[in-house]
């Protein structure tokens, strides 16, 4: 198993956020975590990324507890809230940066710009782009670099319907190449199109 979560519980103060959650994902699998607002989807993803220690239960990624180390992040790519863009770098240079720091990228910069419809915006600062275009850029950065596990928190945020279909195709391709995707989403259409196994979360009482 690439991802294994057993009986995971998270508490904020005295309020339970997650209670007794189990989740497993193997190589080549796409898992969609769905649920109402406040069900704890993002919290679960943070647990899998090692950014939120669970109050109870066990989380394993690649057979070990997730750790905030360089080695871990070379295998795992996370797309959650909008990142803080590096000022003074263009859209193309943000992609170039990923290519410069990783061996054997999955896409060339040109291919990523084409696939994510960013060619016309390549020489702009990311701050100038629309919300949807910025989301496409961060997805492009995550999918350009090599990884074995993709953790996506609402990847459909700001994307138009047509591009959501393309994203589903990209995620399917990623999984077909042996990668594992775990995404929290409200878009059941995206989950279906990506061939994702659905895991429903109920809001903790």
């Amino acid at each position: 198993m690439i991802v294994m979560a057993r009986d995971v519980g998270v508490v904020a103060g005295e309020v339970p956020i997650l209670t007794g959650i189990d989740l497993a994902a193997g190589p080549g699998e796409v898992v969609a975590v769905v649920g109402v607002n406040g069900a704890g989807k993002s919290t679960l993803l943070r647990c899998l990324a090692g950014l939120q220690p669970p109050a109870s239960g066990e989380v394993g990624v690649f057979g070990r507890p997730p750790a905030d180390t360089a080695a871990f992040w070379r295998d795992v790519a996370v797309v959650a809230d909008e990142p803080a863009w590096y000022p003074g770098l263009t859209v193309r240079e943000h992609l170039e940066l990923m290519r410069a720091v990783h061996h054997d990228t999955r896409l060339t910069v040109e291919a990523a710009l084409e696939e994510f419809d960013l060619v016309e915006r390549a020489d702009l600062a990311p701050q100038t782009l629309s919300t949807g275009q910025r989301q496409r850029l961060v997805l492009a950065m995550a999918l350009l670099r090599p990884s074995r596990l993709l953790l996506l928190d609402e990847p459909e945020r700001g994307l138009d319907t047509a591009f959501r279909d393309r994203l589903a195709t990209m995620l399917t391709r990623y999984a077909a190449a042996g990668g594992t995707v775990v995404m929290a989403t409200h878009d059941l259409g995206l989950a279906r199109a990506a061939g994702a196994r659905r895991v429903s979360l109920e809001a903790a009482a």
Partner: peptide, 9 residues
């Protein structure tokens, strides 16, 4: 977030 994507220590 971006530094994690870069995977540099």
């Amino acid at each position: 977030a971006l530094s994690r994507l870069s995977g540099v220590g």
